[in-house]
Design a protein around this nucleic acid. Structure first.
Lengths: 249, 249
DNA sequence: CGCATCATTTATCGATTGATAAATAAGCAC
DNA sequence: GTGCTTATTTATCAATCGATAAATGATGCG
């Protein structure tokens, strides 16, 4: 917790930094600089968090700190650019189609989807920035979570319904979405343990996905059949608060 | 991102803080002060993160900032005390017994356990400090994760084995632990979405647990029977790398 | 080559940080 | 009440933060 101590143990003459070291000043196209900045900012913020200093970022870029303010009016704007890079640019629109495309069996589709999805998010950059952003209280994570529901979990729910011979176009119940969240969250948390907490997971990613999907699909079937039975017995007012098969009390 | 601006728009005479406001100075027993400090530090660090200032903490305690350094040699020691409060003091040793006690059906036990466990961890303080600590890279989360495995997940694995008529004393395979992690992580992530990301979960905690446990127990049964079959066909070298029933490739 | 543009650097400000030393006073023992 | 212990405050330091203004020089165009 001690402050960074004086780097060189030389004469602490109180004035004049030891190595003035004329800087080498190269000019680079603005667009390329911008990309450099955002890329390194993603890396730095993922390591340290959004409290990382602009001076440290400039040092990693081999540039002076005020130059950052030519490209980003404030540190907040730099952070917004980082958000965009992680949340928007790395999202693949093909994922929802991948889940609903019926040319392969459901289990295989989910396996392939989650292998691809986790290849995107199981990196220190993605996971750590996602967690840092969530803790900062910005609404971005809440919005991302909405995307996950509409573009990933609801397609999954429809796919499972087709598999079970249930109506895929009937409105998806909140309980169903929540059920798929447990699969999604379980897989997500594997990445957090491995990548963020540095925990040595003894099982490979593919095998973990295979087991999770297998167990989930088996178990979800009966639960979702239960949901459908409830809907059939009371077809009106389909959304609000009703018992689920496993719930007591 | 702008720095905190001058609180009062009065005369910025450059010197002399506007309200000297003699402080009221009450003496409190050291032990009680210590508890006060840790308690408020938990609250503050959970909100802001461990970069929260010692002055802000002192202000919330209605005390001056240097007083903190009489109780904690450095800010790092304060953080350690916060860790202890969250990770150690809030862990209930009875949980593992709760899972393995066979006086109730397994599904009921898991339901009750997770209701109790989530009552402990589904608070802003617990979840946010857990995430902040994990991102700081301290080993505490990795150690906590070991505790979860040995005291929660492995008891669950044994319980399910008994349920299925399998040998509960045979060594638990890594694949099995990993399988229970998906249940645990799925439930955990519900709390993160709700408490940390502020996402409005449409389903109550109890109902979500009920559905997750029901789906998982159904699905886990077949997967774990598959594990046992593999063990039976090759009883030696039980641990390393083998196919699981759901895995392709 | 000379010149203008603008990417980059130097210098610096005011605020805030963790931490230390010394002065002060609240509360208990007598 | 007197006095001692020590919990608490006042004052202050050096480092670091985000941000701004002005000086500088690399590059491309004529």
């Amino acid at each position: 917790m001690a402050r960074r101590q004086a780097a060189s143990a030389g004469t602490s003459a109180n004035e004049a930094a030891p190595p003035p070291e004329k800087r080498r000043r190269v000019r680079i196209k603005p667009e390329e600089r911008y990309r450099e900045f955002v890329s390194k900012a993603v890396e730095l913020f993922a390591e340290v968090g959004f409290d990382a200093g602009t001076r440290e970022l400039a040092q990693r870029l081999d540039v002076t700190q005020p130059l950052l303010y030519r490209y980003f009016p404030s540190k907040g704007d730099l952070i917004s650019a980082v958000y965009k890079e992680i949340y928007l640019d790395r999202w693949k629109p093909g994922w929802s189609g991948m889940i609903e495309d019926e040319s392969e069996p459901l289990r295989t589709r989910l396996q392939h989807f989650y292998e691809d999805y986790t290849e995107t998010i199981f990196t220190p950059e993605w996971l750590r920035i996602y967690m840092f952003a969530g803790l900062r209280g910005v609404d971005i994570n809440a919005r991302y979570v909405v995307n996950v529901e509409t573009d990933l979990l609801m397609p999954m729910a429809r796919a499972v319904r087709r598999e079970l011979g249930l109506d895929p176009d009937a409105p998806i119940r909140p309980e169903e979405v929540e059920l798929f969240w447990t699969l999604h969250g379980g897989i997500f948390y594997y990445g957090v343990r491995k990548v963020v907490y540095g925990f040595a997971c003894p099982i490979g990613k593919e095998q973990m996905i295979a087991n999770a999907v297998a167990a989930f699909l088996d178990g979800a079937a009966s639960v979702m059949r239960g949901f459908a039975a409830e809907d059939a017995s009371a077809p009106t007012a389909p959304s609000t608060r009703r018992r689920s098969p496993g719930s007591r009390r």
